[in-house]
């Protein structure tokens, strides 16, 4: 278990204020925050790369605040991977083991195991400069895991990858975590990454932890407006009635809206619906009526490069988002009737 107690530190333009976090054994913990929130500083503090006067870091029953990085038993994958360009892939992976004077047979076994686990066996003799982004990420992971760390620290590990590779590697990271069971701290600004990977999460903003909990807890009960904004201001619908309709589906009636969903274990009390997951159309969309609703625009506000629309559907006021250019093309006005289509796969259920 990692415990961060009252940590305050300033590094360059970034600072952390009074951070208190507990990360459980074998947990996949994600720190979500916007650029400049201090995510990298937090991970660097856990790695022992910064000295600080205020606060403590504990690993199980040991205070590791003053323990140098080389004695912390951590694996660290920085955002740009920082593979050593003067070593090939195999030499990068074995770097840590050689630095710790591991016997040659251990080194060989670890390289073979990790190369197999991360599907990089054919790359072992390659120059790291010739690798793709996804390959670099796997090699950096193998290098970090080679020394059998107690904690794995991942600094925005998927941010420099294309969408398809990032999606694939999200699954791979999760699989790796389940196979190895290494306590993992992953920082990101990406909401989807957080939703898909986190056992628990913390929302970090301007150097301060705003909320800690499971993704469902944070998404359904954002503690304040800052968290709500960061997690995408979800529409929370309270279900008045839920009835099975066969074929593994249920119909949830929420404030006059009938939403058809796959059957859930433990029932459905609330549904979180993110503004970005609602399609808007000014004309009636073709096809079945399922999860499509007619509503009236009650408010329009610009939000960053988007337009946020409040749409009244039954008793619910739903927040939806449109890119500026599409909004202008559609020429939507307040009091106008519009059609909403819900992305079923993106619904979050509580």
């Amino acid at each position: 278990m990692i415990e961060i107690k009252n940590l305050s530190v300033r590094v360059g333009d970034f600072s952390l204020r009074d951070i208190n976090l507990t990360i459980n054994d074998r947990e996949y913990f994600v720190v979500l925050g916007p650029t400049g929130a201090g995510k990298t500083v937090l991970i660097e503090c856990l790695a022992g790369l910064h000295h600080f006067r205020h606060g403590e870091i504990w690993l199980d029953d040991a205070d590791i605040t003053a323990v140098p990085p080389e004695q912390r038993q951590i694996g660290y994958v920085p955002q740009d991977y920082a593979l050593f360009p003067f070593l090939n892939v195999a030499e990068n992976i074995t770097f840590g083991l050689k630095a710790r004077h591991a016997p040659p047979e251990t080194i060989n076994d670890q390289v073979t195991t990790l190369a197999h686990l991360l599907h990089i066996s054919p790359l072992l003799n390659r120059n790291v400069r010739t690798l793709s982004g996804g390959e670099k990420q796997r090699v950096a992971l193998a290098r970090a895991l080679a020394t059998s760390p107690r904690i794995l620290l991942l600094d925005e590990p998927l941010s420099s990858l294309d969408v398809r590779t990032a999606k694939y590697l999200r699954l791979e990271l999760r699989r790796l975590h389940e196979e190895l069971g290494v306590t993992t701290v992953h920082v990101t600004h990406d909401l989807i990454e957080t939703e898909e990977m986190a056992d628990r999460m913390a929302v970090l903003n301007t150097g301060h932890v705003e909320q800690i909990g499971t993704p469902a807890e944070v998404f359904f009960n954002p503690r304040n407006e800052t968290v709500a904004d960061l997690v995408g201001t979800p529409n929370i619908l309270t279900c008045d009635q839920v009835k099975p309709i066969g074929h593994g589906l249920v119909e949830a009636v929420c404030g006059g809206m009938s939403i058809v969903l796959p059957l859930q274990d433990g029932g459905i009390r609330k549904i979180a619906l993110f503004p970005r997951d609602i399609y808007i159309s000014t004309t009636k969309p073709p096809g079945p009526e399922l999860n499509r609703f007619k509503g009236v625009v009650t408010d329009i506000q610009p939000f960053s490069s988007l337009m946020r629309l409040k749409v009244r559907v039954g008793k619910n006021q739903l927040l939806a988002e449109l890119p500026q250019d599409i909004f202008e093309e559609m020429d939507i006005k307040t009091d106008q009737e519009v059609f909403l289509i819900l992305k079923l796969r993106r619904l979050r259920i509580h």
């Binding site: 790695a47 022992g48 790369l49 990085p69 660290y76 920082a82 840590g96 630095a99 290098r143 020394t147």
Partner: peptide, 17 residues
């Protein structure tokens, strides 16, 4: 980039190493 040294520290190297 100081990141290279930082990574090597986490991999078991002292500052000098």
């Amino acid at each position: 980039d100081p990141r290279y040294e930082q990574v090597s520290r986490t991999l078991g190297c002292s500052k000098l190493k």
